[in-house]
Write a protein that binds this DNA or RNA. Structure first.
Lengths: 138, 138
DNA sequence: CTTTTATAGGACTATTTTAGTCCTCTATTA
DNA sequence: TAATAGAGGACTAAAATAGTCCTATAAAAG
């Protein structure tokens, strides 16, 4: 099981690449696709989700592309994962209650809630900004 | 994304059920299937993996079934997840190096290793024994 | 005002993973 | 030796993930 799927992996690599230049630089998709190794059409879908989540902004037409919509230092890994993949859950009980419907007697729900919280906290501690700084220390 | 898939969910529910009786009680698969809501043939596969991992032992023939091979208090959730689903990884980089092949310059590998470690630690802290005790305090 | 460049967005397909079934075989014990 | 219970492999089904394609729209340059 992999927590971070390919789409989020592409997103993180693209965002860290962007964080290595001035924050208002506009990066065309072609550039991001080259840097991340993602197919450009696929990366576009990923970027659209980051846009919808308010992480990046996009511009069409000549000179268009992708730039940050907020400071990389306040963009958490959790935020990116959730924007691109959807909610992070330890199991079905924590995804819209569709499995256990919040039943009081649900074993998993009652016992693993703490792990769920700790996991999301972990993902909230890392930001795109910190990743970029650590990445640039060769 | 769900960290705990259905097979592991079944496994945990079955193990906690078993932990609520004497440790050497033999539970036929039919009983475990009824308690967990899993199809019996599917649950058998799950039990086989727990057996291979040394978590439970099985007996064939009349009066046969499944019992603990070690104390529920030393069976960690991580152990169950890994036995049933395979390795827990934050992303491809941490599954047999097949994506980044351990490259020094792999962004994800260098930066998210800490989260990987913290996550497995979380899953190691909970045991079947503690889950069972918390489940029985209605 | 039209050509060029670049993203938007939806429908579609392919691949992989997860879930579950089925059938034959072997072990156990009454 | 009949009945019961798991072993193990081949197979199918369903769902999630990954990726493609086509048409439309926006922006800027000429």
């Amino acid at each position: 099981m992999e927590l971070i799927k390919r789409n989020t992996d592409y997103a993180l690599r693209a965002l860290v690449h962007m964080a290595e230049t001035a924050n208002d630089t506009i990066h065309p998709l072609g550039e991001l696709a080259a840097v991340t190794g993602a197919p450009e059409t696929f990366l576009r879908k990923v970027v659209q989700k980051l846009d919808a989540a308010g992480v990046v902004a996009t511009r069409r037409g000549r000179g268009g592309g992708v730039c940050f919509q907020k400071d990389p230092d306040v963009i958490t890994v959790l935020e990116v994962v959730e924007a691109v993949q959807g909610p992070v859950a330890i199991n079905k009980c924590f995804v819209s209650n569709r499995e256990c419907a919040g039943r009081r007697d649900c074993l998993i729900r009652r016992n693993l809630g703490g792990i769920q919280t700790d996991l999301t906290d972990l993902l909230r501690e890392a930001t795109v900004g910190t990743l970029a700084r650590r990445a640039s220390q060769a």
